[in-house]
Write a protein that binds this DNA or RNA. Sequence first.
DNA 1: TATGAATGAGAATTCATTCAT
DNA 2: GATGAATGAATTCTCATTCAT
Lengths: 200, 200, 200, 200
Amino acid sequence: MTKPVEPKTVTPSVPDRLLAEATRLFAERGFERTSVQELVEAAGVTKGAMYHYFTSKDDLLYAVYERVLTMQMARLAEIAGNGGSVADRLHEAAADVVMTTVENLDDTLIFFRSLHMLSPGRQSEVRKERRRYHELFRSLIEEGVREGAFQDGVPADIVVNQYFGAVHHLGMWYRAEGELSGAQVGAYYADLLLASLRTP
Amino acid sequence: MTKPVEPKTVTPSVPDRLLAEATRLFAERGFERTSVQELVEAAGVTKGAMYHYFTSKDDLLYAVYERVLTMQMARLAEIAGNGGSVADRLHEAAADVVMTTVENLDDTLIFFRSLHMLSPGRQSEVRKERRRYHELFRSLIEEGVREGAFQDGVPADIVVNQYFGAVHHLGMWYRAEGELSGAQVGAYYADLLLASLRTP
Amino acid sequence: MTKPVEPKTVTPSVPDRLLAEATRLFAERGFERTSVQELVEAAGVTKGAMYHYFTSKDDLLYAVYERVLTMQMARLAEIAGNGGSVADRLHEAAADVVMTTVENLDDTLIFFRSLHMLSPGRQSEVRKERRRYHELFRSLIEEGVREGAFQDGVPADIVVNQYFGAVHHLGMWYRAEGELSGAQVGAYYADLLLASLRTP
Amino acid sequence: MTKPVEPKTVTPSVPDRLLAEATRLFAERGFERTSVQELVEAAGVTKGAMYHYFTSKDDLLYAVYERVLTMQMARLAEIAGNGGSVADRLHEAAADVVMTTVENLDDTLIFFRSLHMLSPGRQSEVRKERRRYHELFRSLIEEGVREGAFQDGVPADIVVNQYFGAVHHLGMWYRAEGELSGAQVGAYYADLLLASLRTP
DNA sequence: TATGAATGAGAATTCATTCAT
DNA sequence: GATGAATGAATTCTCATTCAT
């Protein structure tokens, strides 16, 4: 909505092309193994152009993080705000984060593999935003515990960390070409989460 | 006959020192951000000595993987071979892998963050060994499903991937200085796993 | 329009300076004994600049070969295409290659001393181009044999290899400061060649 | 004759094995591209053993030169001292040097390719010995000129340089697997030399 | 906006040689 | 005689970034 209509809708803008290629290359061979030269060649732009839109290679990496953080936060906020039982909302949110993760597998792979490559300041920003995300998720669990829908034998923090640990690792084994769709894996993961929270 | 007793038994051998410092530094600042120069200085050896024992920086990274893989496989094999109900053995194995992971947090952090920095051939080797490990763990779950002790709504593969995803991510949030001991986290994680597998 | 006239037309371009210094140093102390560091210092450029124009040290060596090959082939083609008796044309070509060799003694010294330092692919390219050159020269001899101007007791191939062996070795003993000019040596060499081919 | 009978005649002595492998490897990949490590591995000895017999890698290279120089000088001296016409003796010497060159192609390849890798002092020694060899050969030509058997249009020096240039280059093109034997090439080369010296 | 030549600091690795045993 | 661990200096090459145009 913010962007003006492009004259050539087929060719994405220079920064978009850079971001898309950066995501692909950083996931494929890692941030450090991707040179700015390769990146701009893949995106079909010149170095000067890249440095016109991004202040550094690090900046390009950070842009990947921003996109993921913004998107995931928006989706969780929407789902958490829906009606329905807390179990339903938690299930939906848990399944949804798996789906968006596998749909953006490159981004999520980069997310955890390359966090330490960001500048310390930006690492903090990412962690802070991530914490907000976890807290929203945790609040759903706590709501269920208060309502008596979920058991409270295990601290909600632990549950959240365990669940997102599993989600973040999808990039290490999930393959789009495999048998399972993102939706299927999402359903299974959410089922396991809910089962683990069921009152005995 | 193999080696005379050293006057200073406290000083570890050159390769041991290198491996210890490599683990620490690779975890602290990442494999790519750790130069061979820094590494050998930290270990108090010369570059030439390092290349006498390790053929490359990559080789040193691989040595970290080998140590972890060997250790975890040995522990799982021992626990799986114990007596007791399948639920007890699975709980013990699940809790144990968390404990050994937090006791070797540096190695674990490196494990999933730097896998893509290994040579393709070594990546395969690590993945293959890792698969053997997962399969042993999975066989415990399948045993429980056959016995009727565990539900079979979710494929055992998915359960294993979810659980180890969570375990591998401990390095991203667990801090030894925090409130929870490795044993506590292990117990919680294992409880959640068992709860998620409980027959309804 | 291509380039404005430089105020200092005397300063050659960066790649030209590199090529000139490389030729000098490779001849003086050998390809292996010349470090990139020395090379760029001699040329008054930075290492980065060198790697901007040449992909490797090897690439710079190859550039020396290319220059010589191109030049010698052009000269031989011109002379072979001239009018005059075959004996005259062969004499002229034989003398000319000696003259251009002594005028580019550094290049020639490098040529046969460092061929094995090129990548295998480039060695093949050089040999192939060299073979074309030899074949053109050989065709002159064969023409003379067919006409009855030259004896045919020795295969033309052998004659060519012998002659160019001698020419290539000029770099091992000819000194510009000596008594003989390149033209004189060329005349002697060509005389000997023609004498050896004379019908008895 | 000088060496005592070895207990194991099948296994050459350590220095002999080193010299043989050094010759092979220096010819195959060049002096600089052959590491001492590769060398001792190929010879099946340890580094310590090598440094026991040779003071340096350079020393090993020089040993190759010594062998060739000694051998060729001995053969030429013998032939020059024979009876027969000067033309016959020159022909025999010219053919012989070709034969011994192709029979020791590795050594002769190294001879001209790696001369600049020797220490300056040793380079001088080699050049001096080489000059003595050339002078003996030249004296044969001058003898023929004085007798009127050979033309004197071209200085004997030039003739010698031309001829040995050709001989030295055999290593660049002659292949033992090819059609021509060393004796055949030797005969052709000698024929060409004599033809070029014939009085008109 | 955009270019691309040039920078310069730093990277991993190699290697002949030494020396305590 | 022989070993092989250890040295340390040198080597080629990479790369994010800058800046005059």
